[in-house]
Amino acid sequence: MINTSSFRQTILLAIITLNLISTWLHYIDNALFLSRYPGPTWFTSVGVISTVIVMTPVGLLGYWFYTKGMFWLAYFLLALYSITSISSPVHYLFPMVAPMTWKMHSLIWLDGFMGLLLISFLLWSSLVLKEWHSTLSAN
């Protein structure tokens, strides 16, 4: 018999792992080729890298809280972390300074998709499964 709680933790771990990979790939590429990515003029390579360095522990901490059954805190931190991914397509709201490569487009959309996948999991967990309810019932 499969432990459904453990199975959901494994699914979330896979989503977060893919999210971390896509975000780090996109943010490193963004920092290296900052002048080719459309975005606000105040973006700097140091700022881009600093953001991913600060946000990575937020996502990992969110996962840890999820495994401990502290769902509302986990949902908050994971939703906060997902902003690093779901915000990637915002590049397209700024005028292109130089043509972007297929790699740049791919990294933007992969990162955005991974963020949506994480948000989808959070909605499934909180609104469909109502996992947070199980911790309220246990108290």
Rank of each mutant, 00 (worst) to 15 (best):
G59D: 08
Y81I: 11
A79Q: 04
I86K: 05
K130H: 04
S6L: 15
L32G: 13
V54T: 09
D29C: 12
I16A: 01
H91R: 12
T101Q: 05
H26K: 09
L129S: 11
S126E: 06
Q9M: 13
Y27P: 00
L13V: 10
W132C: 00
L127Y: 06
M96R: 15
K130A: 00
H133T: 02
L129V: 10
G62D: 09
V46D: 09
S45A: 12
S6F: 13
A14I: 14
V128R: 07
T10Q: 15
L61T: 14
R36M: 09
T51I: 08
T4K: 13
A14C: 09
L122F: 04
L77T: 06
V128W: 12
L116P: 00
F43I: 00
F33N: 11
I53C: 08
K130I: 00
Y75P: 03
T10A: 15
S35A: 14
T135F: 10
T56F: 05
L116H: 11
S22C: 02
L107R: 01
S106W: 07
I21R: 00
T4A: 08
F94L: 13
S106P: 01
Y37G: 03
S120L: 14
D29V: 08
Y75V: 01
M96V: 14
F113N: 01
L61P: 01
S82Q: 06
T41H: 13
S125G: 05
T41K: 13
L60E: 08
S106E: 07
T101V: 03
I2C: 10
S50T: 07
P57Q: 07
Y75K: 00
V90F: 15
I86M: 11
V52F: 07
V90D: 11
S50A: 11
L60I: 14
R8C: 08
V48M: 02
L118M: 12
M104G: 03
W102G: 05
L73R: 11
V97D: 13
I21K: 02
Y92T: 09
L78A: 07
I28C: 11
P57L: 13
T23F: 01
L60T: 04
F7C: 10
